[in-house]
Design a protein around this nucleic acid. Structure first.
Lengths: 180, 180
DNA sequence: GCTCTGTGCCTAAATTTCAGGCACAGAGCC
DNA sequence: GGCTCTGTGCCTGAAATTTAGGCACAGAGC
């Protein structure tokens, strides 16, 4: 089964999300946009939040798939910047809606994944205690996450790339201090 | 029914047609490309030639839809050039295959449609006998058609726009002579 | 109170896709 | 001449998907 309908629903949803906020998009809008029956929507997705969940998850998945091995703070920054910029309007409309929590949860997960890949590699076999490494990952995960959220709350006005790299520079100097 | 599968089949076919000649594309290739069962192909299309027929017909339809009222030789030229250039490789691969006849038949139809719209408007109520107008349309239809075919047979080497406009200039001077 | 719109769910019917088979044709090889 | 291999077009029945048409409920606006 090739599931073209499922894909079409997601495409329509993203298309509408590029036009207006999530809370102004109804199931009716989506099914009318891709020309299917309303029940077909409910066949594929439990409800609208489930679709949002999947869309966001898919984007985070894409981020991870595209950059499976991030080996430095800079690469991590580039990966997140790329994803955010590619879907700028959609992310804005999802974030400024009722699904902020879903987005934040998923973004947090993605940040953890990305951050832990390079931090684990960086400190592997250097005698760091597991709970210390966990704490370090947690710290950088939150910094990564917080940077994006802060930028979103600031109306996405600053240059995300500059903004994010500034945060990363701080992270990097901290890491270097740790290694010395 | 939104027929995403039917659309996907055509998209895959066009995609493959941009890669290699029609006679090197099998039904298997198409269904594998869009990830469906082979029988689903035969559910939507009688056979491969039927798909070719529909694709070509669709392209000609698009040409007509996009330029419903052509009012001069130049506009006619632009319309045909636009269509041909947009689908350059696909047309080349269809033309240089076993389906040349289908393509030629459809192109001929489209040329007739385009040519007749402006010629009928041009000579409406000028006392021209119907059979004379028909002959005139036929002449320009063939000129239009022949120009494209000649260009295709020449390996699409010349600039189609220049080439086609040269033919149209000849047509135009003929028409002006007719009106005097 | 009322209406209107949207949601989430349900059933039964219709449509579409699927797996797995068949005979046949043509190309290439022994 | 055989043979195998690939592709075509067709068929069946089962499974998956989409559909029409309904229902109760919630919230907004009047």
């Amino acid at each position: 089964m090739a599931n073209f309908t499922r894909r079409a629903i997601k495409d329509s949803f993203l298309k509408l999300l590029n036009q207006r906020p999530l809370n102004q998009i109804t199931v009716k809008d989506i099914v009318e946009d891709c020309g299917i029956n309303r029940n077909s929507f409910y066949y594929h997705f439990e409800d609208l939040p489930a679709l949002v969940e999947e869309i966001i998850g898919e984007h985070m998945e894409k981020l991870i798939q595209k950059h499976p091995t991030v080996s430095s703070v800079e690469e991590c920054a580039d990966a997140v910047i790329e994803l955010v910029m590619e879907n700028r309007r959609a992310i804005y409309h999802i974030y400024n809606s009722l699904s902020r929590d879903v987005f934040e949860r998923r973004l947090m997960d993605a940040c953890r994944y990305i951050v832990s890949t390079y931090l684990k590699a960086e400190f592997a076999g250097k005698g760091m205690a597991p709970q210390d490494l966990d704490a370090l990952i947690r710290l950088h995960q939150c910094a990564c996450f917080g940077s994006v959220i802060d930028w979103l709350n600031g109306g996405m006005k600053d240059d995300i790339a500059d903004y994010f790299r500034r945060v990363c520079a701080l992270q990097k100097s901290g890491l270097e201090a740790l290694e010395r």
